[in-house]
Design a protein around this nucleic acid. Sequence first.
DNA 1: GACCAGGCACATC
DNA 2: GATGTGCATGGT
Length: 222
Amino acid sequence: MKRILKDFYTRMEARYGPTGWWPGDTPFEIAVGAVLTQNTAWSNVEKAIDNLKHEKLLNPSAIVECPPDLLEIALTPSGYFRVKARRLRSFCEYLISRYGGSMRRMQRQPLESLRPELLDVHGIGPETADDILLYACGKAVFVVDAYTRRIFSRHGIVKPNIAYEDLRRFFEKNIEQDLHLYREYHALIVYVGKDYCRRVPRCAACPLGPTLKKGQPILREP
DNA sequence: GACCAGGCACATC
DNA sequence: GATGTGCATGGT
């Protein structure tokens, strides 16, 4: 299995790499992007982040102090603006109360305590937490998303309904634990997913090779 | 005009 | 613990 996952990486890297992920100038901007990109295309997130920059709202205290309707207007392009305004606010409140608003202080915490802490914040689920840990805090956590599940189930590696934590453990067990590798691997999965592995199958020229035929057994369970 | 996008919380069974 | 639903915009 380790060889197969390494081979997938090599093929994706040859086609799309290096990606230099995550897009964002600062750890805080990366964390904000992680919340705003929930179920949303990145092109829409960029517009919302530009609005935040323009309104000088791209820092934790400004977001907490800003009137709710003003924050919602800035977030409009990224969709779910009421929900996401609440979620951004709750993350900033957490960051301020726990770390004085400093991402650098947050980064010094060990992964083992930081992950459960983030999952306790309203609006931060497993994928958003792991995005923040991997790309904003420099922790070697493997991020899995809808594309990861789709790609690797269609290639017969895992079951389509595998749980988030099971899928994450599967990758962390079978891929060498390395920050740069984890960052790049997840980014490449998103590129392949966008081009070849959407909800409606579009797998013909997938750089990872032929996808699973209907009724064909899964290669191996994690 | 329908479908889709880098989820999550909450209700209900 | 599994399954369904609301949340909203912009691109294809």
